[in-house]
Amino acid sequence: KFNKERVIAIGEIMRLPNLNSLQVVAFINSLRDDPSQSANLLAEAKKLNDAQAP
């Protein structure tokens, strides 16, 4: 279950337009470290993406 959620979360994070490459890598590394947190990490990535919108 967590592996599928992690793959989906990674794909979504990679498509967030307002994150820089270091932020994307940090979120992906966090997902690798704890796949059970996929939903929480994706939500945090989306919040950061929205906050950094031009």
Score class of each variant (00 low, 15 high):
Ala26Thr: 09
Lys46Ala: 05
Leu16Gly: 01
Lys47Ile: 12
Asn40Trp: 13
Ser30Pro: 02
Lys1Arg: 09
Asn40Gly: 07
Asp33Pro: 02
Ile10Val: 07
Val7Tyr: 15
Gln23Asp: 03
Arg32Asp: 15
Arg32Gly: 11
Ile28Pro: 00
Lys1Asn: 15
Ser30Phe: 12
Phe27Met: 07
Ile28His: 02
Val24Met: 09
Val25Trp: 14
Leu48Cys: 05
Gly11Arg: 11
Arg6Gly: 15
Asp50Arg: 08
Pro54His: 07
Asn29His: 06
Leu41Ser: 03
Ala53Gly: 12
Ala26Asp: 10
Leu41Gln: 04
Asn18Phe: 09
Ser30Ala: 11
Met14Asn: 04
Lys1Ser: 15
Glu5Ser: 04
Pro54Glu: 11
Ala43Trp: 09
Ala9Arg: 03
Ala39Pro: 04
Arg32Ser: 14
Ile10Arg: 03
Ala26Phe: 08
Ser30Asn: 09
Ser36Val: 06
Asn20Phe: 10
Asn3Asp: 15
Leu31Trp: 04
Ile8Lys: 13
Lys4Gln: 15
Glu5Val: 05
Ala51Arg: 11
Leu48Lys: 04
Asp34Pro: 01
Ser38Cys: 06
Asp34Cys: 11
Arg32Gln: 14
Ala53Ile: 06
Ala43Gln: 10
Ile10Lys: 04
Pro17His: 07
Ala45Asp: 00
Asn18His: 13
Phe2Asp: 05
Ser21Glu: 12
Leu16Tyr: 03
Arg32Glu: 15
Arg15Ile: 06
Ile10Tyr: 04
Phe2Asn: 14
Asn3Val: 05
Asn3Gly: 05
Asn29Cys: 10
Phe2Cys: 12
Val7His: 08
Ser38Arg: 04
Ala51Gly: 05
Lys4Ser: 15
Asn40Met: 09
Lys47Tyr: 07
Met14Ser: 06
Ser21Asn: 11
Ala26Glu: 12
Leu42Cys: 03
Leu48Tyr: 04
Leu48Gly: 00
Asn18Met: 03
Arg32Leu: 14
Leu41Glu: 02
Ala9Pro: 02
Asp50Cys: 06
Arg15Tyr: 04
Glu44Ser: 09
Ala9Cys: 05
Leu19Tyr: 00
Leu48Pro: 00
Ser21Met: 09
Met14Pro: 01
Arg15Asn: 13
Pro17Ser: 09
Lys46Pro: 01
Arg15Leu: 10
Asn49Gln: 01
Val7Asp: 15
Pro54Ser: 12
Asn18Lys: 01
Val24Thr: 05
Asn20Val: 06
Asn49Lys: 01
Ser30Glu: 07
Lys4Val: 06
Ala43Phe: 09
Gln52Phe: 05
Lys47Met: 07
